[in-house]
Design a protein around this nucleic acid. Structure first.
Length: 731
DNA sequence: CCTCATTGAGTTTTT
DNA sequence: CTCAATGAGG
């Protein structure tokens, strides 16, 4: 009976799936059947009776990956995957913290802040401390807090070396206190709190260590220090941990992912089994050869070479466009041609390094009447009207939630302006209580007091009328009773927002059915039958943890537009990688970072390996960015792919750029020049410098002794040079 | 208290 | 360019 499960696995996959009870590291290259190995391993373990579905834990980074895993498992096994511990790091931690909220020192209905909520709270805390937010940007404070939490550090244990970090740490400490009093946790807190819970509570730790005999980790290369430590705690001495990852696809170092965890894992878990999955079932040979050649330039690799038996296929197509608009038009033409050849638009992906690039592409696709779908926009639970509705629901569930209160106390407007809110905050600070409590005590005088009193009555009324109702009716009543519906009915642009509010009611209704709100759920489930609003709390947690689908798709057969980051894990028949220019991809900010170029190169590797059959790489000589035209050079990554694998559609392999005025096409920018006695320098002109090498003039000003040019050097980046001193040569 | 105008800053992203 | 955050004026 097991044979059908294992059919069609290659020897390495088979070995990984049928490993005995031991920890192991699987290096799974792009398109090598990683998810298949993970899910088949789980099915095999259960089917052969080595472990019950309760005794294993599988952890992923995204909800999508977790869902995919559950779907595939239930297709292989006749079991209800509901009770299984398969989920994201954050989802699983949430589950543990709900089950043991007392031990974790959290209120029953603790709420989860998404990063926007978190930033708002950080700002609020900073204002309370009187921190100058010009000198100490709130975003940096947020980064500081999350960074330390991800390193496992509380404010009390952070070592501050300079005034700067000392001040940020003051904010961190105050932020911690505020979260605790409001009963809210941010994403990093879910992990840290859970980690502390397991570390502190020996009984609990022993319980879970005994329970989870098998732990499987997806995308292991993306784990941060805290997640790794959490895994170690949960695994204890005896659990078999199967870590699946690909060091070449580590593209999240910027948010704390630590590739060092792979080496640490081999050491800490005394791994003697490293299995490499190198056979690729996705791409044609030329694509893989290009990816292999590119990634071989990275020095810090565990080493891996993908191969395929699918044949070489087509060469990579390279296109040089005069402007970003021309690049977009080229992509439109090519995609139309592909479509004529029978390829669905949904099988084509258009990738870019940064979201700002999507605008021109979208515009051109739109004018051409090609349907497309952009990933990475505002997601459902992040929309303004939804956040407002959720804030009402949060306040109904947990009145101490100052963030929710501030969001809606005057929305829709009810005559509570900044002045009243300041008074309320002031009074709360003096009394040391939440805004809600202060508001209830009606210690405020005059008009402000009355308006706030009305608001308090509104929320209390909502809470009263809603208690005991099924979830979807709670949401419906609150959306109605809050006045949000009325507000958007009168607003002229409010139709879509109204639809979204209706959709929120629908989401609540389907949440009950699909997402397993079940009061009889086993211990450790997300629902506590003692809490009258427990369904609401689960729903709110769901909203924060799974922000919902990105922007709805425009049609069934739509071209897929996304950043390279969000393309990880996906594959397409045809892929366009656009904007391959120095400064964009690799991004200029990463050029000076430690190992920045290596991470960009891995990003490029991920981009290349998304394609099954056809791959286009394009770049533009000039591009509108931040409202002004910028000139760049072709990305160094183009030079790192063997010329033999490429077909240059319209350019020379030598990456030399003629100046715009030498070209016979395109629209020229207003030529700005710098003049010296030696001659005139022009934007777009190629130059070489004895020290900095080759580059392009991107800006020029002045004459004579004051003449300066800004040059984008391919190796050293952007520099302003005074022409009087710099030994600049044309060409 | 609300609305309009000006100013400034601007990778990558999931949870 | 375009979004977000301040400040002046109704």
């Amino acid at each position: 009976m097991t044979s059908s499960l294992l059919d069609g696995l290659n020897p390495q996959q088979l070995e990984a799936v049928t490993l005995p009870q031991m920890s192991a590291l699987i290096l799974a290259g792009a398109g090598s059947g990683k998810t298949r190995v993970l899910t088949t391993r789980i099915a095999w373990l259960i089917q052969t009776g080595q472990v019950s579905s309760m005794g294993l834990l599988a952890v992923t980074f995204t909800n999508k990956a977790a869902r995919e895993m559950l779907t595939r498992i239930s297709a292989m096994l006749p079991i209800n995957p509901r009770g299984m511990w398969v989920g994201t790091f954050h989802g699983l931690c949430n589950r543990l913290l709900r089950a043991h909220h007392r031990d974790a020192q959290l209120p029953q209905g603790f709420q989860i802040l998404d990063s926007t909520d978190q930033l708002a709270l950080v700002k609020r805390v900073m204002r309370g401390l009187g921190v100058d937010d010009d000198k100490y940007p709130p975003r940096q404070a947020q980064w500081f807090i999350n960074g330390n939490k991800e390193a496992g550090l509380r404010a009390a244990s952070v070592e501050t070396t300079d005034d700067f970090s000392r001040r940020f740490n003051d904010v961190y400490a105050a932020y911690e206190r505020q979260c605790q009093t409001e009963g809210v946790v941010d994403f990093a807190e879910l992990l840290l709190r859970c980690h502390e819970l397991l570390q502190r509570n020996e009984v609990l730790r022993a319980h879970y260590q005994a329970r989870f005999r098998h732990i499987l980790v997806d995308e292991f290369q993306d784990t941060n220090k805290l997640q790794y430590s959490w895994l170690k705690l949960l695994a204890g001495r005896d659990a078999a941990v199967l870590a699946v990852g690909d060091d070449d696809q580590s593209i999240y170092a910027f948010r704390g992912a630590d590739i060092g965890n792979m080496a640490a894992f081999e050491r800490d878990f005394r791994i003697d089994k490293v299995i490499k999955l190198e056979q690729n079932y996705r791409s044609h040979g030329n694509i893989l050869d290009a990816a292999n050649a590119l990634i071989s330039r990275n020095r810090e690799r565990l080493g891996k070479n993908l191969w395929t038996d699918a044949g070489q296929g087509e060469p990579l197509r390279i296109y040089e466009a005069p402007t970003d608009g021309d690049e977009a038009r080229f992509i439109v033409e090519e995609s139309r041609a592909l479509h004529r050849d029978g390829i669905r638009f949904g099988e084509m992906a258009l990738l870019y390094r940064s979201n700002a690039q999507s605008r021109v592409l979208e515009h051109t696709l739109f004018s051409a009447g090609i349907s497309y779908r952009v990933y990475g926009g505002l997601r459902f639970f992040e929309r303004q009207e939804i956040k407002h509705a959720l804030a009402y629901l949060r306040l109904v569930s947990n009145p101490e939630d100052d963030g929710a209160m501030l969001r809606i106390v005057n929305f829709p407007t009810r005559g509570i302006g900044n002045r009243s809110i300041e008074q309320l905050q002031e009074a709360s600070k003096v009394r040391g209580t939440s805004l809600w409590q202060t508001a209830c005590s009606s210690s405020l005088s005059g008009k402000a007091g009355t308006s706030i009193g009305i608001f308090v009555k509104l929320i209390e009324g909502l809470k009263h009328s809603v208690t005991g109702l099924p979830l979807s009716e709670i949401v419906e009543q609150v959306v109605d009773g809050s006045g949000l519906k009325q507000h958007y009915q009168t607003e002229k642009e409010g139709t879509e927002r109204l639809e979204n509010l209706d959709e929120l009611v629908n989401a609540a209704a389907t949440f009950v059915v699909e997402d397993g709100y079940d009061p009889a759920a086993e211990r450790g489930g997300a629902v506590d039958p003692n809490d009258p609003l427990s369904a609401l709390n689960s729903f709110l947690a769901h909203a924060a943890l799974e922000a919902g689908e990105h922007q709805a798709g425009a049609g069934d057969d739509a071209m897929q537009l996304m950043t390279v980051h969000s393309a990880k894990g996906l594959e397409f028949q045809s892929v366009f990688i656009s904007g391959l220019e120095e400064g964009l991809f690799p991004h200029e900010n990463s050029i000076n970072e430690d190992n920045g170029i290596e991470e960009e190169r891995r990003l490029m590797y991920v981009a290349l390996t998304r394609a099954r059959q056809r791959l286009y790489l394009s770049y533009a000589q000039s591009r509108m960015l931040h409202g002004q035209t910028r000139y760049g050079m072709p990305s160094r990554f183009l030079d790192e792919i063997p010329e033999t694998l490429m077909k240059r559609l319209n350019s020379k392999p030598v990456s030399s750029w003629s100046s715009p005025s030498m070209r016979g096409f395109g629209s020229f920018p207003p030529v700005s020049t710098a003049t010296t006695t030696a001659g005139t320098w022009r934007i777009g002109q190629n130059v070489t410098h004895p020290k900095f090498g080759a580059g392009v003039i991107v800006n020029a000003e002045g004459r004579g002794a004051d003449a300066r040019v800004q040059v984008n050097f391919r190796d050293t980046g952007m520099k302003w040079l005074a022409l009087e001193y710099a030994k600049l040569a044309a060409g």
